[in-house]
């Protein structure tokens, strides 16, 4: 396996180079004033969606379970983190890092609470229960006092706007690295084996329940972190921001990017965050175009048209690659 190890490190170096290049490009564009205000303000939302998509991919792509409540975890992180930074009085970076960790941890705790009962369910039933949990979280936040009900939280300090892009970028890269590391480990192998065949996974000694809950907890943690970043970018959060439409938006990103494909999630998150903004000029047509693109891409991916194209001789060879984990 010497070969594999070499290949592995080579891929790793390429990824690092790409990550650094993207950072340099964005910073140069930002500082050089090459980005319009609109484009600059999209940088953080893209990062948030990347974090959400990569973390959801852990449950949907690698564990193989459909969930429609990811926005619920995001909202818990957003509220927990924002309440901290609003009420704490510490230096910005200390406060923000605490908020990130606490937001993630509280979301992870809810991931655990939701993951345990959900073990009894599979497929569409699991999907609807996660949707229900998301809506319950939303309704409860809407009613309780500390979250300021339907009015939501204002005055959240702007710690993660594009002016502080470096810290947001570091968080995104960390999220990606940690999840990729997880997927390519014995723990990730266990999670993937449950997706492929849970009966066989049990038969080779993998405690299926433990790893299902683990995937939920870890995924919820990063969704919570994304929520904290989101809140400290926009400054205002309301319960309605995190309804099931947001969950579906993230799911769409994951499915379009490719289940179990981290790089795909990143690219799809970027495109699908930019696309609606690009179409802002054609306001009414925006949703329509988004819908048509979505349907067309799913039909292209799923109806065999893609396979026919790839196997035809006109398809450039360098774009073909073996399916697998990055």
């Amino acid at each position: 396996m010497k070969n594999e190890r070499n290949k592995f490190t080579k891929g790793k170096i390429i990824n690092i180079v790409i990550a650094v290049l993207i950072y340099i490009l964005i910073m140069a564009a930002l500082n050089g004033g090459m980005l319009s205000r609109q484009m600059s303000s999209l940088l953080v939302p893209i990062c948030v969606n990347v974090m959400l998509a990569v973390s959801l991919n852990l449950i949907t792509g690698f564990l193989g379970e459909l969930t429609l409540g990811h926005a619920g975890f995001m909202s818990i992180g957003a509220y927990a983190g924002s309440l901290l930074t609003i009420y704490l009085d510490l230096p910005m970076y200390v406060e923000f890092i605490i908020a990130i960790l606490v937001g993630g941890a509280v979301a992870a705790f809810f991931g655990f609470l939701i993951g345990v009962p959900v073990l009894r369910l599979r497929g569409d039933y699991l999907a609807i229960v996660t949707l229900a949990f998301g809506e319950i979280i939303k309704s409860v936040i809407n009613v309780i006092k500390i979250t300021n009900g339907a009015k939501g939280l204002n005055d959240i300090p702007s710690y993660s706007t594009f002016r502080n892009f470096t810290i947001v970028y570091i968080l995104v890269i960390l999220t990606i690295i940690l999840i990729v590391n997880l997927v390519n480990s014995r723990h990730g192998r266990a999670i993937r084996s449950i997706r492929d065949n849970y009966i066989a996974a049990e038969s080779v000694g993998i405690p299926v329940s433990k790893f299902k809950v683990m995937a939920f907890v870890i995924s919820a943690f990063f969704a919570g972190v994304a929520g904290v970043v989101y809140a400290h970018n926009v400054g205002i959060i309301k319960p309605t921001t995190f309804d099931y439409n947001k969950s579906i938006e993230i799911l769409v990103i994951v499915v379009l990017g490719g289940m179990g494909n981290i790089r795909g999630s990143i690219i799809a998150a970027t495109i699908l965050t930019l696309l609606p903004e690009m179409l802002r000029g054609a306001d009414n047509l925006r949703m329509l175009i988004y819908a048509i693109v979505l349907i067309a891409m799913m039909l292209f991916n799923g109806s065999g048209a893609k396979e026919r194209l790839i196997s035809s001789k006109y398809f450039p060879k360098f774009l073909k690659r073996q399916k697998g984990v990055e």
Partner: peptide
């Protein structure tokens, strides 16, 4: 089934 679900959402 997930592909169909997303198409339905679309």
């Amino acid at each position: 089934s997930l592909a169909v679900l997303i198409t339905a959402i679309g």
